[in-house]
């Protein structure tokens, strides 16, 4: 069979449209967010090398030292270096934040996808989510963490349960939209099974809002972990956590404000950075806003 347009010379390969990554980098708020978050995260990751002192070692001769050239951010009531503790605390907080973001994405994503795709599952699943949503997330996490006992893993589990309903809702909304697209009917028409239609055709097209949502969940989890640690139901002492260090300084806020100040500023930077990144991601992944970015 003759190819109709064979005689037409082939156009030169078109310049590739800017990919998602370069579009993200070009986005100012994503760039600033990445800078802030990246800075804090790298410090946390390199805590073992960067920390000048052992974060756990008590030294009663150096109690309540204000910031000086040896202890850049001062020491606490046991003479532990705040900088070293904060650096290690970042590690714990980010591990918990990432764990919660991934776990809620997995569980909430699955629940939301199933609820959105199979109408029969929708009612029961989402009523359970609504019931969870009825409690303030932090309150629920405190109760769960207290019930499960203090450990890093339990904090991740407790926070994940508390934040799963948000993720599930976002995922369900995305699936509800995408499953009506004609290409989903097209996938059925070539004999794809329902599970395959959902996993291969619906989910990849419904992921974008979830990705954005999970950056906010990450930030919320970092904040919530600080709250739990502050209240004493976070990872058990002497594990340095950002919330734990703030709690340590609470009784001495007048005399030694540097104890609470340093981890407090770090939490603010992490959360700000993550939120800015989330905004950037949202703009980059939303095709309706795409032209507005340039």
């Amino acid at each position: 069979m003759a190819v109709a347009e064979a005689a037409v010379p082939m156009p030169a390969k078109r310049a590739k449209p800017p990919g998602a990554i370069s579009r993200l980098i070009a986005h100012p708020s994503f760039r600033w967010g990445l800078l802030l978050f990246g800075l804090v995260a790298v410090c946390g990751l390199l805590a073992d090398w960067l920390a000048p002192f052992d974060p756990l070692r008590n030294n009663f001769r150096t109690r309540f030292r204000p910031p000086d050239e040896t202890f850049w951010f001062g020491t606490d009531r046991f003479g532990r270096d705040i900088l070293s503790r904060t650096l290690h605390g970042i590690q714990v907080s980010l591990r918990i934040g990432l764990g919660v973001a991934l776990l809620t994405a997995l569980i909430g994503g699955l629940i939301g996808a199933v609820a959105g795709f199979w109408q029969r599952a929708d009612g029961p699943l989402m009523r359970v989510m609504d019931a969870l949503m009825a409690f303030p997330a932090v309150l629920l996490a405190i109760a769960l963490a207290a019930a499960l006992g203090p450990s890093e893993l339990n904090v991740i589990v407790a926070l994940s349960i508390a934040y799963v309903p948000r993720t599930a809702r976002v995922m369900r909304a995305g699936v509800l939209v995408v499953r009506e697209f004609p290409f989903v009917e097209g996938a059925r028409a070539i004999g794809a099974s329902p599970a395959r239609v959902l996993l291969r055709h619906v989910l990849p097209n419904a992921m974008a809002p979830l990705v954005v949502q999970q950056t906010y969940v990450f930030a919320l989890a970092v904040l919530a972990e600080a709250v739990l640690s502050f209240l004493g139901v976070g990872p058990p002492p002497p594990t340095p956590t950002l919330g734990g260090i703030i709690a340590d300084g609470r009784d001495f806020i007048q005399e030694a404000p540097w104890i609470s100040l340093t981890p407090g500023v770090v939490i603010a930077l992490v959360v700000l950075g993550l939120n800015l990144m989330g905004d950037g991601l949202r703009d980059a992944l939303d095709p309706r806003l795409r032209t507005a970015i340039r």
Binding site: F181, P182, F183, E185, R188, A189, I190, G191, N205
Partner: peptide, 19 residues
Amino acid sequence: RGERLAMIFQEPMASLNPV
């Protein structure tokens, strides 16, 4: 479906999976 029995749809713009 897709083997002995195939179907094409009205909206070619939206009938292919964009990803």
